[in-house]
């Protein structure tokens, strides 16, 4: 692993995935979410949780768009061990989103407990990674977004199936919700790390 050569290769890997743009814009948009939440902070108790989930969704969507490359087919043929790279990519993206969420949570209005923010990020990134491994990265955030919209508009449910459906809105100690998020995270990460992003060419 020669220093400069290795760094250049990593740079190419990141560029092919349009990571620099996402990395630069994510903090900005997260800040905007925080400002929006601050401006509308009111007595309503559901609002902060909704903001927290939406912020997690935004972060996950940004990470999701970077999970594949325009030349996925070409890269599949390259003689490199991809799975460690994909693991690092996914883990680093998740950590970045969680840290930004915590920063917004600390600096602005309280959004949710740390456990809830972590659970939501993990579950949503699982859905997104799973989708990326089947349909490619660019729109991989769509199922996670649809799920979030459904859960937030329909509101949190307390029945068994309802808890699975609205897992991202449940309190931190809800076992069913935590299990759902964990299953999503594990299956999504496994599918993405082992299979990689689905091949995708131009629009």
């Amino acid at each position: 692993m020669s220093g400069p050569g290795w760094a250049r290769w990593e740079l190419l890997y990141l560029r092919a995935r349009e990571v620099p743009a996402a990395a630069a814009l994510l903090p900005v948009t997260m800040l905007a979410v925080g400002v929006l939440a601050n401006a509308s902070a009111g007595p309503s108790s559901t609002a902060p949780a909704v903001v927290g989930v939406c912020a997690a969704l935004l972060g996950v969507a940004f990470v999701g768009t970077t999970l594949g490359s325009a030349d996925a087919v070409l890269e599949h043929t390259a003689a490199i061990r991809w799975w460690p790279r994909r693991t690092v990519h996914l883990v680093a993206g998740t950590i970045a989103v969680v840290l930004l969420l915590l920063a917004v949570d600390l600096a602005g209005p309280s959004l949710a407990t740390t456990a809830e923010l972590v659970r939501n990020t993990l579950g949503l990134i699982g859905v997104t990674a799973l989708c990326a491994s089947f349909t490619g990265s660019r729109l991989s955030w769509c199922p996670a977004a649809a799920w979030t919209l459904l859960a937030v508009v329909a509101g949190p449910r307390s029945s068994g199936a309802g808890q699975v459906l609205s897992w991202m809105l449940q309190p931190a100690d809800a076992r069913t919700a935590a299990t759902t998020a964990a299953l999503l995270a594990v299956s999504g990460a496994a599918s993405y790390i082992l299979a990689g992003p689905a091949g995708l060419r131009r629009a």
């Binding site: 349009e18 948009t29 929006l36 903001v51 939406c54 999701g64 977004a145 937030v152």
Partner: peptide, 21 residues
């Protein structure tokens, strides 16, 4: 024309509606 535009629009329009007083 960025891949980041659709999710950004989605989240902010949704939040804007939910938080609108």
């Amino acid at each position: 024309p960025s891949v980041l535009t659709p999710p950004t629009l989605l989240v902010f329009s949704f939040l804007g509606q939910m938080l609108s007083r």
